[in-house]
Design a protein around this nucleic acid. Sequence first.
DNA 1: GTAGTTTGCTTGCTCAGTCAAGTAATCTTG
DNA 2: CAAGATTACTTGACTGAGCAAGCAAACTAC
Lengths: 169, 169
Amino acid sequence: MDHLSAPNHLAEDDLTTWAALATVLEWLPPALDAPLVRDFDLTHFEYGILFALAEAPDHALRMSVLASYANSSLSRLSRAISRIEGRGWVQRTRDPLDGRSTLATLTETGLEMLEKATPVQAQTVTELVLEPLTNAQRRQLREISLRIQRAIREQEGWQPPRPLLSDND
Amino acid sequence: MDHLSAPNHLAEDDLTTWAALATVLEWLPPALDAPLVRDFDLTHFEYGILFALAEAPDHALRMSVLASYANSSLSRLSRAISRIEGRGWVQRTRDPLDGRSTLATLTETGLEMLEKATPVQAQTVTELVLEPLTNAQRRQLREISLRIQRAIREQEGWQPPRPLLSDND
DNA sequence: GTAGTTTGCTTGCTCAGTCAAGTAATCTTG
DNA sequence: CAAGATTACTTGACTGAGCAAGCAAACTAC
């Protein structure tokens, strides 16, 4: 299981740790999305957009600010907004204070949708992530996540992952 | 913090835990991919394929078996193999034992590629995941990941994430 | 041994995402 | 106050993934 020179392979223990994490990285996101998609035809990402808008004053945010909150590129957000605008859950308007900016505003229908989706999403997170863990493990998971985040940010050529107040319940 | 019946919102602590994890779920996969893509134009998924083939007898596996190992759908694998076949790193041949099956075989060039990529990938995993954690946290991460995996598998309508021996290096 | 089913993969269609180019509004500078 | 940046998006071209339909090889049953 090893040949040449470098840290060519990970130690046995580390390898199993990594394999366990890798599986979670692969399976957890779709598992978290599934109920939302099934019941509301809404992805986690789109849900996050509605959530952020609902929190905002006047239920409106500039595209660029919303992109920050949603940890998204502007172009990804632009297309996502187009999609949910098509379903009548948000509206775009030109920002009167700066004609370059676009304001995304949550509609009444969008708010209703969000209020139906929220408990479903909370339930999924609880069921898949929180409930299986002990209290100590939840604390550890928080700390572990923060350390990994820090390592990513410190990486060569890393561009700040945005303000993030983002991800939600 | 609750209205109707269900857990409409998460408790404060749980919410920060979840937010921390959600950020990792979003940022870690691309961060893990970056060096491999930059240096070898190889995604983690493609790397996994080469890795699995290298481990296999004769450096060959049936598509369906390889799909299991790579935790992938057959169609995703089929396209991925087409891509890396185009670069000369694998070859497809009809299985002589069963004409329906296709054998994917690692080429000499593919093996060389893998041997260059492996230490890079090991280094990235070490840097981003292992090194930032204490030994206790690594153990905890393993246990936490396994518990979350179990919760996912136990979920309604879950179809077994395949044999998995998969994720690698 | 041939008709019908199943298996193992491939491929067409569609969709979400990225990158880079395009566009309109605003700011800057002489 | 115009010419040239810069900002804030939007959009076109392209890529990778999923789903479902397609296709050929192998089994199964009479």
